[in-house]
Every structure is written in C-alpha cells, then in structure tokens.
Design a protein around this nucleic acid. Structure first.
Lengths: 105, 105
DNA sequence: TAATTGTTTTAATAATTCTTTAATCGTATA
DNA sequence: TATACGATTAAAGAATTATTAAAACAATTA
C-alpha cells in the first residue's frame, strides 16, 4: 500500500509536459526501455534538461535506469504506476453501486 | 481522447497533499459529494485554503460543484479521472506481452 | 594516453505555486 | 432590513520548480 506523500511525489513527477512525454514514451517502449540520448532526440529536449527530468521521475520511483556501455537506458516501472493508479480509485463510492457507470471505479 | 496538456493539468491538480486528500475523500463519497465546509473540517484546512484548492481541482475538471442553499457540494468527476488514468497506460508495451506481469498494462 | 561520445551536475535566473489574512459575496433566517 | 452563516476572492510574501549554459564525469575508441 502506497502512502499519500509517495503518491504526491509520483503525481508531481508526471505533472509536467516533458516528463509526461518521457513517461508515456517509456510506457509504450516496455521493459527494454530507451537510452537517454534517444529520448532527448525524440522529444527534442536538451541532454541537460532530459537528465534533470529523468532524475525527477527516477526519484519518484516511476522509472528505473540501467547502464549499458556508455548508454543509460531508462524504463517505466509498471508496478509503481499501477500502485499510484490504484491509490486514486481506492474505496471508490464507499464500495457501492458505481460499477454501473464507470470503468475502474 | 484526452490531450497531453489536459492530463498535465489534472496531474498537477492532484500533485499536492491537500488536493489529493480532497479528491480521495470525494472519490470515496461518490456522486452525492460533500459540502465545502465539511471537507474543510474533515481535512483541517482553512475555508480560504479549501476554496483555493477546490478551484484548482474544478479547473482541472476532476470535480464538479453544485449549490444547495448556502452550501456548495463538491463531487468527484469519475469520467475525467478514468480518462486521465487511461492516458497513462495507453499503448503500453506497444500492445505486446505485458499482460503477463502487470494488472492494467 | 588522448580524444570522443553519452550523460550528468552545477549555478543562475525566471516562472510558478502555496499559505495567510482581510475583505467580499450570496443565501437564509430573525 | 439587519444579522448570521457558508463560501469565495484578492493581495502579499515565502517557497518550490523549470530552463539554460558551462563544466565535469564516465565509458569507449584511436
């Protein structure tokens, strides 16, 4: 079970256009992930700025990194993402009668 | 389909301890919602500060308001919440082979 | 070892966000 | 109409966050 402060950290990490784009890119990529330079090229962000943003996502636990030669690969952490999503819908409608109208809630 | 900027607005709205608490409270409450003063009491937040935060959540489309006498009731907008959650998991792992390990992705 | 490539860090500035207090607005009741 | 109650707004200062450029670091190759 996730704590409120962790969830705020994760949401803050995603609440920025560049970081949201990075995360979505990595979600689509799956477990192999993508090298820092590739991400920077694809999103047209400077290397320094990319480093700044992936650091924020990493601290939030939403992505992981692995080194391969002089490349650093980043990948989405699906467990953390799912825990965050679950926190938002938890105990929805006090457990009653809302499956009728909503998908996850 | 939600646009990136809308999702950033929604995530920013939730990425703050007081607002996350307000939203979770309203998610549990369901469609009836809760009056501003009740929320403020429950979360031990000043009326002015509560107004500030519900305004942010309202602008993000995550909650709605309805007036009843001199009370203003706020309720979670489940459609917006689900759209935001869907955006994050969209096209996960390019559509391949990750149902094996994850719940939503 | 020197040079190159990929990435990160630092420092500075610019921009945004949060909290508090006081004043204001709207609805209901005496 | 005057008063009370619930809620919102406005203004100010404090705190946090984003962007840029330059320097530094780490791994590879000449």
């Amino acid at each position: 079970m996730m704590k409120s402060a962790q969830v705020v950290t994760a949401l803050s990490a995603l609440a920025q256009p560049t970081r949201l784009a990075i995360f979505r890119l990595l979600v689509v990529r799956g477990i192999d992930g993508m090298a820092a330079g590739q991400i920077a090229d694809k999103l047209k962000v400077s290397p320094a700025n990319l480093s700044f943003h992936v650091k924020t996502l990493t601290h939030a636990g939403l992505i992981s990194q692995r080194q391969d030669g002089r490349f650093v690969y980043y990948a989405a952490n699906f467990t953390a993402m799912n825990a965050m999503l679950a926190y938002l819908t938890e105990n929805c409608c006090a457990g009653t009668a809302c499956e009728l109208e909503n998908k996850q809630c």
